[in-house]
């Protein structure tokens, strides 16, 4: 589904990603772990098409197509979703209005009519129940005055509404208390199927207790230095990142 080969990316001439290789197949959950500054968030931004970063080498294939030259909205239309670490506020635009616009823009890009209002309402009701979201929340301005937990839940709600093929969750666990974490993780698990895939980007192992990965990759200084099964996450939790750093240096 997602194939990344020898990806190099830089911002303002500073190279951050130094040759990433990653292969994600339908039905899989991948976790990318690493210390602060290792390039985790840059990787998610580059996959989503953020033009602040310059891809200097390598390519990104999504559903068998090279998406390196595509605008971020075109990548989204193909079924790529990024749950932001710091979701932005848009004053005066309600959660409902925002998601309605996002869904209809995606439909239009595929040559479809706008989603009928009753269908939209039904979907909103279902997905908000799934994520235990109070309906009043949906009429509030997007992310304005939201708590950390509300912001992340709103991200997963949007993911549920947009039904992407590949979801990248960037530090979704940061700023969440244990209850919110459980709700968000449950939501992700319920939305998971054999046809879609999830990439979880995280600093801690905590979220992975709830969203169990098939593969764990360790990102260090712009490179994936170690990959393994879910047990690698436990090992990292126990020993920290230093032993890997030493291993790499050796």
């Amino acid at each position: 589904m997602l194939r990344i080969e020898n990806l190099h990316a830089s911002v303002e001439d500073k190279e951050i990603l130094k040759g990433i290789n990653l292969d994600v197949k339908p039905g899989e959950i991948h976790a990318i772990m690493g210390p602060n500054g290792s390039g985790k968030s840059t990787l998610s931004s580059v996959i989503a098409g953020n033009e602040d970063f310059e891809v200097t080498k390598g390519n990104i294939e999504f559903l068998g197509e090279d998406i390196g030259e595509l605008a971020p909205e075109d990548r989204a239309h193909k079924g790529l979703f990024l749950s932001f670490q710091y979701p932005v506020e848009i004053p005066g635009v309600s959660v409902t209005n925002f998601i309605k616009t996002a869904i209809n823009e995606t439909r239009r890009a595929k040559g479809l009519e706008d989603m009928p209002a009753n269908e939209m309402l039904k979907m909103i009701r279902e997905k908000s129940e799934l994520l235990e979201i109070d309906r009043k929340f949906l009429s509030r301005s997007l992310n304005e005055g939201f708590s950390g937990g509300e912001k992340k839940r709103n991200e997963i709600f949007q993911m549920a509404m947009l039904e992407p093929k590949l979801a990248i969750l960037d530090e979704t666990d940061s700023g969440l208390d244990i209850d919110a974490l459980r709700i968000v993780a449950n939501g992700v698990n319920k939305l998971k199927s054999k046809d879609n895939a999830v990439v979880v980007i995280t600093h801690y192992q905590r979220l992975l207790e709830y969203i169990v990965p098939d593969f764990v990759h360790v990102l260090l200084n712009g490179r994936i230095v170690k990959s393994g099964g879910k047990e690698l996450a436990f090992e990292l939790e126990e020993k920290g990142y230093d032993w890997i750093k030493q291993e790499v240096e050796v």
Partner: peptide
Amino acid sequence: QIFYCNQRGIDTEKAIAL
């Protein structure tokens, strides 16, 4: 803000309007 909207499938013109 624009990139956030773009990522949700909303192009830049539409994002500004929103």
